[in-house]
Design a protein around this nucleic acid. Structure first.
Lengths: 342, 342
DNA sequence: ATTTAGCACTCGACACACAAGAGTGCTAAC
DNA sequence: GTTAGCACTCTTGTGTGTCGAGTGCTAAAT
């Protein structure tokens, strides 16, 4: 059964109102709205139908109605004012400012966007920087710190630096190290980071065998470090913002949420698998347990159509979907453009 | 007026018991303890005196007693079982394991100790890595990324790397850049990082003047970046642990605490000025507003007597002072030893 | 055939009263 | 100086009553 015009109108107003007020909305409140030309009794009848269909719920038998997750889903899919200009000038300027300023380095850009986003929305923002498989090796450097310690740096073409401090078993021959590094660089520059681990062994295997065990040990450490740091480009900003949302007046919800958001690795996995475009995941649609009361909106940004990274906002299910989606769209665009200029 | 033996005993038991149970302790509960040989009526009299003196408080007129901040202060200063072996084998092994393992790099060590500490105590731990003024320049590297972008790396003798991506106004001459870097390295290696900013200008001023403006711009960025990153060696672990402490059942306290702990810069300032040794700051003794319900225990670790960094635990005023102090002492010692071995 | 007015009913929120229990302070006896 | 005893205080939990917002249903109005 499909919804009538009037039911859609009522559903829309209920959700809009609830998003604003966080209070269950009753038939009298609705009847006062200027869009509504019929009486509260009619509204009650329609609301009863909407409830039977699962779009709205009561918090108790004589309360006003609250959107269900199904209701939000319908709202997001069909009712969202399509491409209406929701953002204020202030919002737009704030976001553009991140890119307008002469910025140095992608990592800062990611951090700053996350911050702006969480400040503007008062939700929690999560930004995933470019995935490692997009970047290529720019240079490998090794600097001896002591007799038995080497600092190795892996620099990518995007200006990212992975460092690892390696302890080596036998004392170091400096010129030999230099030759080793030169070999590595000669053979590996330009290799995508994601292939680096395997290529490293392939390309330099013969060289290593002819040398002492030091180099095997160094490579071992570098490779194992790369695994760990893959996830480092995840920035979470505004973790405490959710505390000011009324749905988090319950201490147990706060606990669950904070615990969930502390496990950044989980979010990494969720965000990484995101397809292109904007996606909204509402309440129990989320895989992660701690955020079943929340909605997650994600947007990917691209470089020439290739997905590079993800921007996301985590808020209560009662989220300002329309505004947040517009913001993410804008920001993802700016990101993509920024990348193409690089 | 000085406290009698018996009052001390009572104060001690009250505090010990309250630290365990988080419940106000009454005269009957006390009388049941095996250490106590006198009746609950006597205890009531003594408790009235202790209250007049400000060491304990009532939560309401007919409640049991709770330690006041003055009480905790006295407890920490005079009553703490001096160097009794509080730590369990498990605690000790867990902490040693951080150092026992073949660890790479100070930064990881700092992170791992913070983690262990917060896990063992179930409080929040804060570890401040070696202050920048201890470390010296090991090497400066500059790698051109594009025509107008240079990645500059500052490597310290402790293996720490500061990177900054610099956009430069005029296209780059690669050999000239190499000469510039060589000059920088020749003149600046071994300079303490804290002096680097000024020395950088002094030493290379003449060189810069004879070259194009690129180099001034590069130095500018590096220097301004160093300022920001000075604070990066602060690791906070277990932020959400406090949520399981009963004193944080109040949502407003949670909010205040989370907000406070999110401002890492504040903690940096507090920890940086710490004198050598272990320090306990109780409740309102803390300068920071959000943690007036908390106690902060800090310990510095040293290298040949020179203070290097700080380890701290932030918990409720009802903290296991004795255990935490022992743990910090142990860990600070391990840290100092580790440094000396380097 | 819809829409609406009217009304009985439900439930949460709040205030109040009451009892039980833990703990105190004080007094008088030991 | 110590203790037993007792009246008193305050919290906590439970039950009761009232108020108001909101619903569902019925019957009348359009």
């Amino acid at each position: 059964m499909v919804l009538t015009e009037r039911q859609l109108l009522i559903l829309q107003i209920i959700i809009d109102d609830f998003i604003r007020s966080a209070q269950p909305v009753g038939s009298r409140t609705l009847a006062k709205k200027s869009e509504i030309t019929f009486s509260s009794a009619t509204i009650r009848n329609e609301m009863a139908d909407l409830e039977d269909l699962g779009y709205i719920e009561k918090t108790h038998s004589s309360s006003g109605r609250v959107p269900s997750e199904k209701g939000y889903r319908y709202y997001v899919d069909h009712l969202l004012a399509p491409s209406t200009q929701i953002l204020t000038e202030v919002d737009i300027l704030a976001m553009r400012s991140v890119f307008a300023e002469r910025m140095y380095g992608l990592e800062k850009l990611v951090k700053r966007s996350a911050k702006i986003l969480s400040e503007l929305t008062n939700y929690t923002s999560i930004v995933l920087g470019p995935l490692v498989n997009e970047t290529k090796l720019r240079s490998i450097q090794m600097l001896p710190l002591d007799d038995d310690t080497v600092l190795s740096l892996i620099v990518t073409d995007k200006g990212h630096v992975e460092k690892s401090v390696v302890k080596i078993p036998t004392p170091l021959d400096k010129t030999e190290l230099e030759r080793f590094v030169a070999t590595l660089n000669a053979r590996l520059i330009g290799v995508p980071l994601v292939e680096l681990k395997t290529r490293m062994y392939e390309e330099v295997n013969d060289v290593i065998h002819s040398k002492i065990e030091n180099y095997a040990s160094i490579l071992e450490t570098i490779v194992s470090n790369m695994n760990k740091n893959e996830k480092s480009s995840l920035i979470v900003s505004g973790k405490t913002n959710m505390l000011s949302q009324p749905e988090f007046n319950d201490i147990d919800k706060v606990r669950a949420f904070m615990r969930a958001i502390d496990k950044e690795a989980d979010f990494y996995n969720v965000l990484r698998k995101n397809q292109q475009g904007v996606h909204v995941t509402i309440g129990h649609e989320n895989e992660l347990h701690g955020i079943k009361d929340c909605s997650l909106i994600t947007a990917t940004y691209t470089n020439n159509g290739e997905p590079l990274g993800t921007i996301a906002i985590l808020g209560p299910t009662r989220m300002e979907y329309s505004r947040v989606i517009s913001m993410l769209n804008l920001l993802a665009n700016e990101f993509s453009q920024w990348h193409e200029k690089q």
